[in-house]
Nucleic acid binder design. Structure first.
Lengths: 158, 158
DNA sequence: ATAAACTGTTTACTAGATTAACAATATGAG
DNA sequence: CTCATATTGTTAATCTAGTAAACAGTTTAT
C-alpha cells in the first residue's frame, strides 16, 4: 500500500514535469522571430530611418492617398490616438499633408507629398534589401509558405 | 522632345508608385500575427494569469531548475536587468526561489517550488488550449511547417 | 430636434525593454 | 600572490509602443 502510494506520486511528478518545452509554442517562436526581424529592420534603416510602424503608415498613405486617420488606424490595427504621433512625424518630415475633406469637416485626408512618395520608394528598397539579406536562408517558396501561414493566423482576427 | 520628356516623367512616376504594398513584407505580417496571438494569450489567461514573458521564464525555470538569472536572461534573449522584475514576480507568487550556489557567491540559482511546478503545468494546459483554439484553422502539418520556418528565422540570429 | 455616433486629439497611464552604473565576487596573466 | 578584467544580480533613468478615457466639433439617424 505504501509502495503503491509512492509509485503513484512518482507518476504524478513525472506528469507534472512532462517536457516543459517552451519551444513547442507558436506564440513564443513567433515573438522570437519577430524580435529578430524587427531589430534587423531598425539596424538596417539606421538611426534616422523610419521605425517599422512609421514605414507601415507611410506605405499605406502612398497606397491609399486621401485615407483618413481613422481609416489608417483601422488598417494598421491600432487606436486612433496612437496614430497621431506617427502622422505628426510624417507631416513634420514633409512626407504627407493633413488636408480638409469637403463635405465632412470632422475628417482629414492624409495625402503623400512628392517627397513622401520618393522617400517611401527609397525606404521600400531598403526594407526589401533588409529582408532579402536577413532571410537569405529561406527559399522563395519557403517565404511564400510563411506568408500564407501568417495570413491564416491574421485571418483569425475578429 | 517635350513630349519625350513628358513620357519619361510619366514612367518615373509610375515606377515611384509601383505596388506599394505593405502586405509583401514578412516583417509586417509577422508583427500582425504576433499581436493577434499575444493578445489572445492574455485574453485567455486572464487578468491574474501569467503575462507571456512570465510564463516563458517559469517554463524555463521548470525545465532547467537551478538555472541562473544570467543564464535565463540569455535563453530568453533579454537583458539581465529586465529579468529582475520577472523573477521578482515569480518569487513573490511563491513559484520559485532564489537560492545560493556553493562555490560562486555571485550567482543565484533559480529553483521552482512545488507550487511553481503545479502552476506551470496548469498554465501550460491553458496556453495549449489557447493556441489550439486560436489556430484551429491551421492543420498540424501547417503548424509544424510554421514552426520550422520560424525556426529558420531564429537561426539567423547572431 | 435631439440622441447617438464618429473624428481627430490630448492626457495619463501601462508594459516591455534598454543602457549605464554599482558593489560584490571570481578568474586569469604575469 | 596580486592586480586587472570579467561576471553577477541589481537599481535607476530612460525609451518606445501602445492603450484607455475624455473632449469638442461635427455628422447621422430616429
Amino acid at each position: 500500500m505504501a509502495s503503491v502510494r509512492k509509485t503513484d506520486k512518482r507518476i504524478e511528478d513525472e506528469a507534472l514535469v512532462e517536457t516543459p518545452d517552451l519551444e513547442e509554442f507558436i506564440g513564443y517562436n513567433l515573438k522570437r522571430a519577430y524580435v529578430i526581424v524587427q531589430s534587423d529592420f531598425r539596424r538596417t534603416l539606421g538611426e534616422d530611418g523610419f521605425a517599422p510602424r512609421v514605414f507601415s503608415a507611410l506605405s499605406l498613405v502612398v497606397q491609399y492617398p486621401n485615407v483618413t486617420s481613422s481609416g489608417l488606424a483601422r488598417m494598421l490595427g491600432i487606436e486612433r490616438s496612437g496614430l497621431v504621433a506617427i502622422v505628426d512625424e510624417l507631416e513634420g518630415r514633409g512626407l504627407l499633408k493633413r488636408t480638409n475633406v469637403p463635405g465632412d469637416r470632422r475628417v482629414q485626408a492624409l495625402v503623400p507629398t512628392t517627397k513622401g512618395k520618393t522617400a517611401y520608394a527609397e525606404a521600400r528598397a531598403a526594407v526589401r534589401a533588409h529582408e532579402d539579406k536577413l532571410l537569405s536562408n529561406l527559399s522563395d517558396d519557403e517565404k511564400a509558405t510563411l506568408m500564407s501561414l501568417l495570413g491564416k493566423i491574421r485571418a483569425t482576427e475578429a
